[in-house]
Amino acid sequence: NKFNKEMRNAYWEIALLPNLNNQQKRAFIRSLYDDPSQSANLLAEAKKLNDAQA
Protein backbone atom coordinates (compact mmCIF):
# COMPACT_ATOMS: atom_id res chain seq x y z
CA ASN A 1 0.00 0.00 0.00
CA LYS A 2 1.43 3.34 -1.11
CA PHE A 3 0.13 5.22 1.94
CA ASN A 4 1.66 2.69 4.34
CA LYS A 5 5.09 3.12 2.76
CA GLU A 6 4.80 6.92 2.63
CA MET A 7 3.54 7.01 6.21
CA ARG A 8 6.36 4.79 7.44
CA ASN A 9 8.98 6.92 5.69
CA ALA A 10 7.46 10.15 7.02
CA TYR A 11 7.22 8.66 10.52
CA TRP A 12 10.95 7.93 10.68
CA GLU A 13 11.99 11.21 9.09
CA ILE A 14 9.87 13.14 11.60
CA ALA A 15 11.06 11.01 14.52
CA LEU A 16 14.68 11.81 13.65
CA LEU A 17 14.34 15.58 13.11
CA PRO A 18 16.82 17.08 15.60
CA ASN A 19 15.17 20.42 16.35
CA LEU A 20 11.64 19.24 17.20
CA ASN A 21 10.78 18.42 20.79
CA ASN A 22 8.97 15.20 21.68
CA GLN A 23 5.60 16.91 21.96
CA GLN A 24 5.94 18.34 18.44
CA LYS A 25 7.04 14.98 17.05
CA ARG A 26 4.10 13.22 18.71
CA ALA A 27 1.64 15.74 17.28
CA PHE A 28 2.94 15.27 13.73
CA ILE A 29 2.99 11.48 14.11
CA ARG A 30 -0.56 11.45 15.52
CA SER A 31 -1.65 13.44 12.46
CA LEU A 32 0.07 10.88 10.23
CA TYR A 33 -2.03 8.11 11.72
CA ASP A 34 -5.20 10.21 11.52
CA ASP A 35 -4.74 10.83 7.79
CA PRO A 36 -1.99 8.82 6.07
CA SER A 37 -2.82 10.46 2.73
CA GLN A 38 -1.31 13.68 4.12
CA SER A 39 2.10 12.10 4.84
CA ALA A 40 4.00 14.24 2.33
CA ASN A 41 2.36 17.46 3.54
CA LEU A 42 2.93 16.64 7.20
CA LEU A 43 6.57 15.79 6.56
CA ALA A 44 7.05 19.09 4.71
CA GLU A 45 5.49 21.00 7.63
CA ALA A 46 7.63 19.13 10.16
CA LYS A 47 10.79 19.91 8.17
CA LYS A 48 9.82 23.61 7.96
CA LEU A 49 9.32 23.77 11.72
CA ASN A 50 12.57 21.87 12.27
CA ASP A 51 14.45 24.40 10.12
CA ALA A 52 12.78 27.34 11.85
CA GLN A 53 13.87 26.02 15.25
CA ALA A 54 17.47 25.35 14.19
Rank of each mutant, 00 (worst) to 15 (best):
S31P: 02
K47E: 02
E45N: 10
N50W: 01
N1W: 01
K47A: 07
K48H: 13
A10S: 07
A10K: 07
L16W: 09
L20Y: 00
N21L: 08
A52C: 02
D34A: 12
N4Y: 10
L42Y: 07
P18Y: 05
N9V: 15
Y33L: 07
A15Y: 15
E45A: 07
S37M: 14
E13H: 13
Q24W: 02
E13P: 01
Y11L: 15
K48V: 07
K5R: 04
D51P: 01
R26W: 04
Q53A: 14
S31V: 08
W12K: 15
L43G: 02
A52V: 09
L20W: 00
Y33C: 03
A52L: 13
N1K: 04
N1E: 12
L32C: 01
Q53M: 13
Y33P: 01
P18N: 05
L32A: 02
D34V: 15
E45M: 09
K2C: 07
Y11D: 01
N4P: 07
Y11R: 14
W12E: 09
D34F: 15
F3T: 07
A44C: 02
D34Q: 08
D34T: 09
L20R: 00
L43W: 03
D51Q: 13
Y33G: 04
R26M: 09
L17M: 13
Q53Y: 10
R8Y: 09
N9L: 12
A52Q: 15
K2R: 10
K25P: 00
E45G: 03
A10C: 02
L42V: 14
L16N: 15
N41T: 11
M7Y: 07
I29E: 02
A15M: 14
E45C: 04
N21V: 04
M7C: 01
A27L: 04
K47G: 05
N21I: 07
S37C: 03
Y11P: 01
A40Y: 08
L42Q: 04
P18V: 11
S37I: 07
N50A: 03
N21H: 07
K25S: 01
N9H: 15
F28W: 04
F28H: 01
P36T: 04
D51F: 12
K25N: 01
L49C: 02
Q23A: 13
A40D: 09
L32I: 05
Y33H: 08
R30F: 10
L42K: 05
A44P: 01
N22M: 03
A40H: 10
N19Y: 13
K5I: 07
A40S: 12
L43D: 00
Q24D: 04
N4A: 04
W12F: 14
N50Q: 02
N1R: 02
Y11N: 03
D35N: 11
D51T: 07
R8T: 11
N19K: 08
F28C: 01
L17S: 05
A54Y: 11
E6H: 04
F3I: 06
N22H: 12
A44N: 10
F28T: 01
P18S: 12
D51K: 12
E6D: 08
Q38A: 10
N50K: 01
Q38S: 07
K47S: 06
L32M: 07
P18E: 09
A15Q: 15
R8L: 11
N19T: 05
E6S: 03
N50H: 02
I14Y: 00
D35H: 14
N22G: 12
L32D: 00
W12H: 11
L20K: 00
Q53P: 07
L43M: 09
F3E: 06
Q53E: 08
S31N: 11
E6I: 04
E13L: 13
L49R: 06
N19I: 02
N41S: 13
W12Y: 14
N21W: 07
F28G: 00
A46Y: 03
P18K: 15
N21C: 02
I29R: 04
K25V: 05
K25Y: 04
N41W: 09
N22A: 13
Q53K: 03
L16Q: 15
R30M: 08
A40W: 11
N21T: 13
L43K: 08
I14C: 01
I29Y: 13
D35W: 09
I14Q: 00
K5C: 04
K47M: 06
K5N: 10
K2P: 09
N50C: 02
F3K: 04
L16K: 15
R8I: 05
Q38M: 15
D51H: 08
R30D: 05
R8C: 08
L43N: 02
K48I: 15
E6A: 04
P18H: 09
N22E: 15
N9A: 15
R30P: 00
A10L: 06
P36K: 04
K48Y: 12
K48L: 10
R30C: 03
